[in-house]
Write a protein that binds this DNA or RNA. Structure first.
Lengths: 340, 340
DNA sequence: ATGAAAGCGCTAACAC
DNA sequence: GTGTTAGCGCTTTCAT
């Protein structure tokens, strides 16, 4: 039977000691050098556990204690992989005694402040920012960090002193390129929404390096730019297939994520284009359906679990005040299936 | 330039009025019949907005104000569809001025209390419970609701007076059955982990009704039970295909969700079984990859957005104290693609 | 139309 | 070892 909303003074009354002592026993307040007799301690713990006492977080916060809340900022158009990561995040945070409060960020940069101010209202101790990067808004992001000084970015922003966890997408795409070349592919197509997003820049860099390493030169015909290419839809896949394969004759297409790859594969099959004989296709993320597809989608697995663990760890260190800006770089993993 | 952590008294000092008046203007405290002169009001609003003042939620909570936090409980094994719903949930909640705090629940029922107590510690005003149902734990769930009296369940628990949003899975499966019969299918297979979970009971009921409506009788051979069937994996798909199609000769398989359908389709294709000519396959949820598959997966679309909206609306009403227990029943939508 | 004082549940600083 | 007091930022009640 769980009592409702006890407070320290209720325990104090039953234990016949002051609230201070209860606080000392239950939360270890007062520092290392407080002495409480074993018997009182016992008695208090007994009563508290029997009554299932839980502290009022708001009251503790008011005295300057941390809230134990971590704010997580997610882009409203975030691909599924981020939610996978969110799940691990909650777990890691919980393990360290934190709760997660989420907020979605919309395209516009201003919402970054609003959300930050709002999080501060709630006393969040730090933020994990999953939102997209805005390399063109470096200054505003600095301002954001001034509001909440403890931020871990997933994907490093264009910011010198930011703490971030990032996946080495560049190397990921390089591996993809190497793999495709080793399969005898010569004309590797890729499409990108633009080069403003850091993650797209990284992909592009990996693509370039991969080709350069093999002594091949870049053919601009195989690279397609279109602002719509952030959204994996059937229409976009049609456009991509038409331009890169039918018009320009690539023999491989590196897709931005698994869903894009799935739609491009579907489009290709409708044209009786054989995968991978006529056209090799790669995805990105290794979402769970990538393995269930026919053909299985060759892809780059993002270490979502480690991303979450590292992000929480870094933030925890910042909260403890033990850390300065650092960047953790995680390696993704090439998963070869039959689409290549 | 955003000032850091202003408090009411800071505004009060600048506006040369008392904190009380600031509170009245900024938060409308004091009720309907408070009068503040237009000029003071103006002045206060000006200053507050210029300084970008934000209230300290913890302090307001301590005086009895609501936290504006909604707790969301998600099962740690929740399928992707729930995260889709979570995104809409955050949006709807935000619109009504709430923040979302998430917690994951693990299989065991005890964590339900722990999470509830924990949420109460944080002053959450209500909970949206996405977690799986435990029809065998009706009493414990009652206890849970005593701790946090405002709970909206996604999927109705076996509880008379619970407020819930549910999708009529039974009708969904009935539609699936009708559709398959209309395509000339005669031997409809289905697999279920067990009949303990409410959602599986509903599917089974829909299956039975669909057949009964068509004047067909149930063939137990076409129903497969196995506790592993909550997890969509390649191995499970293999088992399902072997037993239902190869051994028992069904000509259609109703899968629990899209990912299961995807794996079963893959298995079938590997056996040169033609979809849908030899075997029709249906999914559930209409995740975004269902359309990208070849063949496109016929499925039942869950109205995740409306689910979220309704859940938040119901909870909001409960928080406002305007509502008694009710159940909202949403209809899913049959999406016909080429897997049937 | 506005302010002063008390108090929400807890902790810190200082007493004893 | 344990208790007392003051105060965190805000709202409420009661004055004025």
């Amino acid at each position: 039977m769980i009592e409702s909303n006890l407070k320290l003074s209720d325990i104090a009354a039953r234990a016949k000691v002051s609230r201070t002592t209860i606080s000392r026993v239950l939360f270890g307040t007062g520092g290392e050098n407080v002495r409480v007799s074993e018997s009182t301690r016992e008695r208090i713990l007994q009563i508290a556990s029997k009554l299932d006492y839980r502290p009022n977080v708001a009251a503790r916060m008011l005295t300057g204690k941390g809230s134990g809340i971590i704010g997580v900022l997610i882009d409203s158009h975030a691909p599924a992989i981020y939610f996978d990561c969110l799940r691990h995040l909650e777990h890691s945070a919980f393990t360290l005694g934190y709760r997660i409060m989420i907020a979605q960020q919309h395209e516009n940069i201003d919402s970054l402040f609003t959300q930050a101010l709002d999080f501060r209202s709630y006393g969040v101790e730090g933020i994990i920012n999953f939102a997209h990067n805005y390399p063109q808004h470096e200054r505003e992001i600095h301002e954001f960090m001034r509001i909440i000084p403890r931020v871990v970015y997933i994907r490093r922003p264009a910011l010198a002193d930011a703490t971030a966890v990032q996946v080495d997408l560049e190397t990921g795409v390089m591996h993809l390129v190497e793999h495709l070349l080793s399969r005898g592919r010569q004309r590797l197509g890729i499409f990108l929404a633009d080069l403003e997003h850091a993650t797209l820049q990284q992909r592009y860099a990996g693509y370039q390096k991969g080709l350069a390493n093999a002594g091949l030169k870049l053919n601009k015909d195989y690279i397609l730019f279109d602002h719509d290419f952030i959204f994996p839809t059937a229409e976009n896949a049609k456009k991509i297939f038409q331009e890169l394969y039918l018009d320009r004759g690539v023999d491989a297409i590196i897709c931005q994520n698994d869903l894009f790859a799935a739609f491009v594969i579907k489009e290709a099959l409708q044209h009786s284009c054989r995968i991978p004989e006529d056209l090799a296709i790669t995805g990105f993320d290794d979402l769970d359906f990538a393995a269930a597809f026919t053909p299985g989608i060759t892809t780059i697995r993002q270490p979502t679990r480690r991303m979450a663990e590292e992000a929480v760890r870094l933030l925890h260190e910042m909260i403890q005040g033990e850390s300065k800006a650092q960047v953790i770089n995680l390696q993704p993993e090439l998963i070869i299936r039959s689409s290549t």
